[in-house]
């Protein structure tokens, strides 16, 4: 459906996107993961034809973005990071305008408008000026705008940024729903978000693709670190000593005391060793009960560090 072939974008000396290659199959939800400034938005802007690549080409449904831009643009619904809204229009006026520039005929427009408003739940604010809407509603209007004309491809740039947790869950389930009928590329800098929604994840850093896999495989590769955070009722020194002496523990350090009489410890295990059971038995034998034990998710920075070093080892 979407082919990105050797795309490079340079701004003077700065290389924003560096020889990026990937394809997206029909009906796939692809997650684009990367820190700020990694080139996610630039790549998306190139696919949608907002800016052009310095080198390389993009094909959507077989049409080249440079040769037949209109055909490509007809097939893409784009929701940029900042929804492109006209503050002086009402929601209804704005969506009418978008249907007009997407060249929908009157009948299709009427039919799809109600459906889209129901889908993103903005029907009750249709008469309000966009500038008076909250951030969450603006985001939804931005999404509605992308859905107009039922484009087969949806490109969503950080669709959940600035939303409250409830809205984030709503938008995520909406995207999953949309994935049944559309091919979707969505970008994010939050790993759990991408793994919750996407069938495949591409990690991009400094303009280069550093990993491309399913979220399951990716988290398998990343779970190797096995870091645990636990709270133990007992004296600090003895507990720490006990934990450190345990087989398979690479490192353990005290994080502080949050509850009197207990201690919070961060434990790092050797690669591929599950230390949870030995840890439990060792502490219970010494009668230092574990109050909680949970594995620590990797931060995005650590993921990149790990993925990039891993790639180097492989190559």
């Amino acid at each position: 459906m979407i082919q990105v072939i050797d795309v490079t974008k340079r701004y003077g000396q700065h290389v924003a996107v560096d020889h990026v290659n990937f394809t997206v199959e029909q009906g796939e939800i692809l997650g684009f993961l990367g820190p700020n400034g990694a080139g996610k938005t630039t790549t998306m802007n190139i696919i949608t034809g907002y800016i052009s690549a310095t080198e390389g080409s993009v094909k959507v449904d077989g049409y080249d973005i440079l040769e037949e831009p209109e055909e490509v643009k007809k097939r893409i619904g784009y929701m940029p990071e900042f929804p492109p809204l006209y503050m002086d229009m009402t929601v209804q006026e704005y969506l009418d305008f978008v249907s007009d520039i997407k060249k929908l005929d009157r009948a299709t427009k009427k039919r799809s408008m109600e459906k889209i408003m129901d889908l993103v739940k903005i029907g009750h604010v249709r008469k309000r000026l966009i500038k008076n809407l909250s951030k969450g509603y603006k985001q939804r209007v931005g999404l509605a705008q992308a859905l107009i004309g039922a484009p087969p491809v949806l490109i969503l740039d950080e669709p959940t940024v600035g939303l409250d947790p409830k809205q984030i869950i709503e938008i995520r389930s909406l995207i999953k729903e949309l994935g049944k009928e559309h091919t979707i590329i969505l970008s994010s800098h939050i790993l759990p978000e991408v793994s919750a929604v996407c069938g495949r994840v591409i990690i991009i850093n400094k303009g280069k693709i550093v990993a491309s896999d399913t979220p399951e495989n990716l988290s398998k590769r990343l779970s190797g670190t096995g870091r645990l955070s636990l709270r133990v009722a007992g004296p600090e020194k003895q507990v720490l000593k006990l934990v450190r002496e345990l087989e398979g523990v690479k490192n353990a350090e005290v994080q502080g005391v949050k509850e009197p009489g207990t201690v919070d410890i961060l434990v790092e295990a050797e690669k591929d060793i599950d230390i949870r059971r030995p840890l439990f038995y060792a502490l219970s034998r010494a009668e230092y009960p574990i109050l909680y034990l949970r594995s620590v998710d990797l931060t995005l920075e650590e993921i990149f560090l790990q993925v990039t070093t891993e790639e180097r080892e492989v190559s």
Binding site: G49, K73, I76, P84, L85, I101, K103
Partner: peptide
Amino acid sequence: RQKTDQLLLTSPLS
């Protein structure tokens, strides 16, 4: 400034 040019330039309008 409002980034609404993204809407216009990614629409099928010339």
